[in-house]
Design a protein around this nucleic acid. Sequence first.
DNA 1: GCGCCTTGTGTGACCGGTCACATTCATGCC
DNA 2: GGCATGAATGTGACCGGTCACACAAGGCGC
Lengths: 345, 345
Amino acid sequence: MNVTGHTRRPASIRDVATAAGVSYQTVSRVINGHPSVKPSTRERVLAAIDELGFRRNATALALASGRSRAVTVLTANTTHYGYASILRGVEEAARAASYAVGIGVLESAEQPAVAAEVQRAADAGGGLIVIAYDPAGVRALAAVPAELPVVGVVETPASPPGGDRPWVWTDDREAAHEATRHLLSLGHETVHYVAIPSSTRRTSARTTGWRQALKEAGAPEPRPVQGSWGPAGGHAAGRELAKDPAVTAILCGNDDLALGVLRALHEAGRSVPGEVSVAGFDDAPHSAYLTPSLTTVRLDFTGLGRAAFALLHGVLEKSAQIAPHPVSVPELVVRESSGPPSARG
Amino acid sequence: MNVTGHTRRPASIRDVATAAGVSYQTVSRVINGHPSVKPSTRERVLAAIDELGFRRNATALALASGRSRAVTVLTANTTHYGYASILRGVEEAARAASYAVGIGVLESAEQPAVAAEVQRAADAGGGLIVIAYDPAGVRALAAVPAELPVVGVVETPASPPGGDRPWVWTDDREAAHEATRHLLSLGHETVHYVAIPSSTRRTSARTTGWRQALKEAGAPEPRPVQGSWGPAGGHAAGRELAKDPAVTAILCGNDDLALGVLRALHEAGRSVPGEVSVAGFDDAPHSAYLTPSLTTVRLDFTGLGRAAFALLHGVLEKSAQIAPHPVSVPELVVRESSGPPSARG
DNA sequence: GCGCCTTGTGTGACCGGTCACATTCATGCC
DNA sequence: GGCATGAATGTGACCGGTCACACAAGGCGC
């Protein structure tokens, strides 16, 4: 162990080489596990490495070899539960593969700003993971130059707007379908929907799943209410819906929206689930503790993040252990906020 | 603009140099804004840069100059509101200074695992920001080698466990003091406290502030209840507190704990704020939409993150515009969950 | 006893920048 | 006119690794 107190600069392979009495190339071979190194030599080198506290300089490695063992996550948001969980999943998998994780936030959805941010991320070297749940993310994905290794975390599987690139997704359509069926099966005539902002001009997968379930049940199809991402949007939407006595079941694009809706219903004096049933999306950590606790669809965001990394990892190193299909199955969690419509309906 | 379709490797300064008919050093001077370059030469170089789409290679820059224009945030958590907001603040400020942001998650609080993660973060080059709100973070801060530039985001200002390093903090003591005083001023005899896990063996700043306010008011000082970080911990603590009819006011270490407490009180049939008042900490985005909406203390985590970066930035570049004192003032937000004790007390 | 392949090791160039120093030329001053 | 001075530019080494190739020694076939 290095006991010289002097804060000198860290040992390089040449330092190790002289200490072990070999050439720097031999040291390089040892740290890369090259087969043709005599065991006794390897031993000496390893001893020198240990003594000098040598660590391979990641920057030099990146410059010389081109491979940078790093990924950058581009996202429009870091605090929302889903986004943050994806990031966590990516970090988890990256750490296991000893990759570094960078993060870039798409503050604005304006094209030039997004392009600049993509450029910055590209400068960092390594691969890119773009969370394309929102307009900023979708634009970012589209702005990534073709030669850059990138994986998109997208809403809808079919032909993502980013072109012909690898991507991962959760089956939002199926999840919405399941949640809607659940509400219908309780006896509600139809289910209203408060949508999260769509990432593209096309209707979102969640909207499609909801619509499909209604159609299958022959239920009337109300206009979806446009929400935002946060509880404030849900609150505004909930206020409108609360006015309509025909509304007895509301599906929300995420749990935050659902929270706002619950609050609005409470303020309007409509009981949940007595008069109105509410269901959310994501199963955020607080949803189980709300009063009433929230019926929702649990999505495995962390697993999604891990899958995104695995896919990118396969692209970056042609070892190419591209996982079969990283779609995890959404799971309906029934809690207090959903129930049969009141008898007096 | 580069129109050759060939996906060739990006232009280097030598490519630019030959294109502009100068030496690579002159190109270097231009991109670094060195004064002694003839205007006409500069113009030619800039034109070549534009034509070839040259971007300075960040890796090479880091290797050659030592400065890496990057910071890594070490944190035990990415999804909790406070942590995620700090990260966002760091990223915001870093982006403005065109620094790259890396992230490392301290999955375990075990010393070896933490040390390894610190090493990894150090390998990335650049500075470190350690969120030391929990045991893992505190250990990480302590494990950072002395020669590494690091800023700690800590709970308590006085002599942080990490040694004599720059750090930032919010005035948690004052915040807890204010919240406690608020509850006492409503007429409660005393205020119970559900604590977040302490980052060190010493009592946390929040606990201290709460205790101090009780002392000043001459109120009895109940034992703080140990919670965890999430709503589950609050729920467990709330169950215990709900049994005791003498409990009329509860201060919680964060909003998630408060949510769990609210739920437990609801399950026990104790009304809020009628029978029991509850206050939280952080003002998470959902707190305003709970039923009852939560009285809490708003903390500027994003600002804290920005301040942490600014401080680190000053250390990394001796331009040293070390901000005066980056402590933002916590703000009490009174909502529905707190009120006077019921008359029948 | 020669050629050939394999194993173990070393040398020089290179990745794309920066840094320290050398060089050239115009200018100002005595 | 000679010389110091400073502006404008170029040259070579270097950061810490990797890569392609050279080279010596040992084993084997014939």
